[in-house]
Structure formats: C-alpha cells, structure tokens
Simulated scan of single mutants.
Amino acid sequence: MTEQQLAGGGVNQVVRVGATVRRPAGAWSPRIHQLFEHLQTRGFTGAPRSFGTDPLGRDVFSYLPGDVGHDPWTPAVAGDPALTSAARLLRAYHDATADVAASWRDGWQQPAREPVEVVCHNDAAPYNCVYDGDRAIGLIDFDGAAPGPRSWDLAYAVYRFVPLGSAAGERTAERLDLFFDAYGADPALREAALASVAPRLRALTDYMRAEAAAGNEAFAAHIARGDLEHYLRDITLLS
C-alpha cells in the first residue's frame, strides 16, 4: 500500500499506510505495545491501538483521524475548549495507567522517575494531540513514555498547552487555572507541577545534548536551529 509521510515527527520518520501508522521500532517498543493494549482494556480510546510489527520491523499502530496541533495553532487549537479537553484527556490517560505504573518500571526509553504514580506520556503537547475541531480526542507519539509522578507530566503539558515561558500571553494565569481545573488537580498537585516546569525543561536540554553528542542527527539539527537556546531562555524565565 502507498506510504504517506506524516508531518511533524522531528526525530523519527513516521508514515501512514491505510488506517495504520508505521514508525521505527526501538528497545522500548514492547512496553509501548503493552501500554496500548492495557489502555484498550481500561476503555481509554484516546491512544493508538497496537498491531505489532510489519515485515520491515516497524511498529504498527492505528491511525487516529483528526487534526494535529502543529505550530502555528489554528484558532480552534488555540481556544479554551481545546485547552480544557486536552487536560481532561491527559487526566483520563493518567488514570488508566495508575494500576500498572509501579509494576512496569523497566523497559522504557526513559528511566522511571520517583514517585511513580502513572505512566507519563512525557511529551504531552498540542503537536502530539489529535483534535476534532476544538476538542482534543487523542494523544500520539508515546516513544518517551515512562513511569513517574503526575506532576512531571503536567509540568510539560502546561508549558506547552497554556503555554508558559516566552510564549506566555495576557491570559496565561487564566488558562493555567482552566487546565488545572479541567484536569482536576488539587492545590498540592498544582504547586508540584509548576515547581517542576523548569526542572522538566532542564532534563529535556540534558537529553538533547546527550543525544546530539551520541550522534543523533535529529537532535543535532534541533540544536542547530535554536531549540536548545529557546529552552534555556525559558528555564531562566521560569526559574
């Protein structure tokens, strides 16, 4: 069947083949397949389904139809309904993983982070979110998923969805409250998430440097185009 390269990616070449998505497999792939299978048993439909591997050894997942929130955002993605639906989607995903996170500590691309509460997506952002109009209906690109605290995943999510840092706007405080309210975060979780934003970005910059130093051309290209400097500036703003 015809392969159609999908927009975005940035690290891996991802293609659509009919109603499926094919992406390079990694040592962590068995965990991702296991995660998707578990999500199905829990009734969470906002993630791809697992279909094993193809003859080329690529991971095969179901294609989630809809619009991905790439930059620049459309008015629908930028609106409050999209923001709050993304928060509810992330909460439903976290809740669906809470029963297995502690027993699935190994085998991921990223190490588990204590305290383990859920399986963090670790890159929850509009560019990894599928929308039906102004409603977030699915999460994609789980390569970096790993067990960890809710606050760690929420930190990056609010940084991206609200957004925070240099992309913050006049309604940042209001949108932050909307996201936390829709997620159902209590005051302690909100405080922990906000305190984790700068450390989460530091972990990202450390990872980018390490991958580029190890010869990962995708991360080297990200650094060359200024992504690393952007995150470092935001760390300063948010610290």
Rank of each mutant, 00 (worst) to 15 (best):
L83Y: 03
P30C: 13
Y207C: 05
L83N: 03
W104V: 04
L237S: 02
R202K: 13
Y183S: 07
M208Y: 14
T236K: 11
A203C: 04
R175L: 07
G138H: 13
E170V: 13
R175P: 00
A82L: 02
G184V: 13
V116G: 09
L39K: 02
R225Q: 15
P81I: 14
R135A: 14
A224R: 12
L35Q: 06
I137K: 01
P163K: 07
V130R: 05
A98Q: 10
I32A: 10
L178D: 10
A7T: 11
W152K: 00
A173H: 09
L90A: 10
D99S: 11
H94Q: 13
H33M: 11
L90F: 13
V130D: 06
G169P: 08
A155K: 05
A195R: 12
A136Y: 02
A96F: 07
N122S: 12
A78N: 10
V17I: 14
T236D: 13
F61L: 15
R91A: 15
Y127E: 15
N216P: 00
L35V: 12
G57N: 13
G138Q: 10
A7I: 11
F51V: 08
G184P: 12
G169S: 05
L164V: 08
L89W: 07
D181Y: 06
A193P: 09
A101I: 00
V130W: 09
E217W: 01
F51Y: 14
V15D: 11
R150W: 09
P72T: 12
N12W: 04
E114C: 02
D106N: 02
A182Q: 00
D80Y: 05
W73N: 00
G148E: 03
A167P: 00
P48Y: 07
L237F: 00
V130I: 13
Y156G: 05
T45I: 02
T41E: 14
I32H: 05
R200V: 05
P149H: 10
R233K: 15
D99C: 01
H33Q: 14
Q109V: 04
V116C: 08
D80R: 14
P75D: 10
E217T: 14
A92M: 08
A25C: 02
A168S: 15
W108L: 08
D227G: 07
D141E: 10
P72A: 13
S151K: 05
A214W: 03
P24A: 07
T20W: 13
S50D: 14
F44S: 11
N122F: 12
A157K: 06
A101K: 08
A136G: 02
A198G: 11
L201T: 02
P199K: 09
G8A: 09
G43Q: 04
G69T: 00
E37K: 12
G26W: 01
F161A: 11
D67A: 14
T53P: 00
